[in-house]
Simulated assay, not measured.
Amino acid sequence: MRNEHTYKIGLEWKGKLTTDKRNRLRYERIYELNFDNKPSLMGSADATFHGDDSLYNPEEMLLCALSSCYMMSFFYLCSLKNIEIVGYSDEPIGMIKVNPNGSGQFEEVTLQPSICIKHKDAKEIEVIFNEAHDYCFIARSCNFNINHAPKIDYY
């Protein structure tokens, strides 16, 4: 396996330039994400930040990337220990702090997976889930706290 991988997308602004009541420029915050050999995805800023709430926003997509990468890292570790997972879902929650100048950042994310396992110790599953942080490419790239609140059931 190679040690380096490159990922590439295309982003094209699809919004309009308008002016407000004070004649200040306003950019409609709609864009299209393009991927090789995959469907395009329309996005916008969150409605709180003058975007279209019917489209995906970057904050949601960050949660998607983190949650799915964590899941795949967890599955990898379970496969090494021959642990059978029969169900997995997650409802991550991210908290953003907006600064007085309008900038902002994620302060923390809490992953809340519901994990259904077959004949194993729940404590061991929690340990493995916590270890997934060290394998998750997205988590290792984040500079905010990532908390875990897994709920474990048996099949």
Rank of each mutant, 00 (worst) to 15 (best):
S79G: 12
L80H: 11
L80C: 11
K81W: 01
K81T: 04
N82W: 03
N82L: 10
N82I: 01
I83H: 08
I83K: 05
E84A: 13
E84D: 14
V86P: 00
V86G: 04
G87N: 09
G87K: 06
G87D: 10
G87M: 05
G87H: 06
Y88E: 07
Y88M: 05
Y88W: 11
Y88H: 05
S89D: 12
D90Q: 07
E91T: 14
E91R: 14
E91K: 15
E91H: 13
P92T: 09
I93G: 01
G94S: 09
M95F: 13
M95D: 11
M95T: 15
K97L: 08
V98H: 01
N99Q: 10
P100G: 07
N101V: 02
S103F: 03
G104T: 02
Q105R: 13
F106M: 11
E107I: 09
E108W: 14
E108G: 00
V109L: 00
V109C: 04
V109I: 13
T110D: 03
L111D: 04
Q112S: 10
I115E: 01
I115W: 04
I115L: 02
C116Q: 13
I117N: 01
I117W: 01
K118E: 11
K118V: 02
H119V: 01
H119R: 12
K120V: 15
K120F: 11
K120I: 11
K120G: 07
D121W: 03
A122D: 09
A122H: 13
